[in-house]
Design a protein around this nucleic acid. Structure first.
Lengths: 211, 211
DNA sequence: AAGCAGTTTAAACAAGCGTTTTAAATAACG
DNA sequence: CGTTATTTAAAACGCTTGTTTAAACTGCTT
């Protein structure tokens, strides 16, 4: 295993656990068993390391996601459940790509949104615009009555639900075990959240006739 | 204005903007125009200052919230919209209590959940258990078919939606202005999110007969 | 007026941070 | 084999953090 990959792996798990700001380069290089200066040598700076960690996942995920969302758009009359379910297989495929891949990535997503404000929005919209565009198209096809403004709000609410849930998924899984004696995994959390966000996005328009 | 209150006010707005970890005591005391050591003199530590900022709001909010939720429980057959709408008046009343009170508090809530993991959960469950208990009771009355496990998940999803939305409400309001030419306030965001979370919590049970 | 508790002040502390610098070890190649 | 380029290593840099210290100042009571 190369020094570069050892750093990426350690950074990924530590970032997911403790956030970007909450993780020091010394923690990362210590866990990776490499020298402290190796981070700046290989990546230039901490910020570039963060981007490298995120890109490794997004490059794996975004083509699968775009394909799945395009397929939904090409079906006859997709439901919102169909749209959100399109995320399942691409997200779970990250577990083949890397151990704990799915949960690590989803937690990183949450960290990127809350740690340094605006970073994730910039990262996704500038680096991977195709994913968002396809997603909006799929939602429009599933719920054409939703106007642009309502769509804007509800997609942000959904982003919040997913990002927040995933950034605290470890705690939620622990509570589910102690309170309900259920041994759940990240895939169960994903399957649980889909009916919720689908119902939220699919809520009737506030001041219009029923769809 | 006392030194103590100057610190509380500056800490509140800076914490809401940049998070607890992202705000230094020197920023706070500089904006408050008091000496650096005043924080440790009056509050003991930064952690105690955070608690003091949160308590100032919760002591104002929790009795109003408990009253409103109890009233909902005492109505004949409340809807989930009724339950969540019970939050509106108590939350907006924080604007009478303090300038920008509502949005500051809701952003602080989000920071407390994401900044240092588990702090807010501990704070709310140990310091203000009555609010959560009344909330759960109200949801149970509005949607009795929801079993404990589903309730657990959906309330956490809702927490995520609200907390995340509010912690980025400033950005959302800005986007709404530039994209749709709408001048919105925090109260509009609250009213927008209610149908979403009500529909999410009210989603049909996954593997049971329709309610 | 003297004394005293309550506050405020400026300065310093120890620790941690990201980054840079130096030199030594390793690998690649003509 | 010898030279060059790459990679590692340890130490130090400059800076910021939360916290503490000790002295000065405040306003009140005796």
């Amino acid at each position: 295993m190369s020094t570069k990959n050892k750093i990426l792996d350690s950074a990924e798990s530590l970032f997911a656990d403790k956030g970007f700001n909450g993780t020091s380069l010394r923690e990362i290089t210590s866990q990776a068993e490499v020298n402290l200066a190796a981070v700046n040598y290989h990546f230039g700076s901490k910020k570039e390391l963060i981007k490298a960690v995120m890109s490794r996942y997004m490059n794996e995920l975004s083509p699968r996601l775009e394909t799945a969302l395009t397929q939904v758009c090409n079906t006859e009359s997709p439901s919102l459940i169909d749209v959100f379910s399109a995320f399942i297989e691409p997200l779970l495929s990250l577990n083949d790509f890397k151990t704990k891949g799915t949960s690590n990535f989803l937690q990183l997503l949450g960290r990127g949104y809350t740690d340094s404000q605006g970073f994730l929005r910039w990262f996704l919209t500038t680096q991977y615009p195709g994913v968002i565009d396809n997603f909006v198209l799929a939602v429009q096809k599933a719920y054409p009555e939703l106007n642009a403004e309502e769509m804007f709000w509800r997609l942000h609410f959904t982003m919040g639900t997913v990002v927040f849930t995933m950034s605290s998924s470890d705690a939620l899984i622990d509570i589910a075990k102690s309170d309900f004696d259920r041994n759940l995994q990240i895939s169960d959390v994903i399957r649980n959240v889909i009916p919720y966000v689908a119902a939220g996005v699919g809520a009737p328009m506030p001041s219009s006739a029923t769809a």
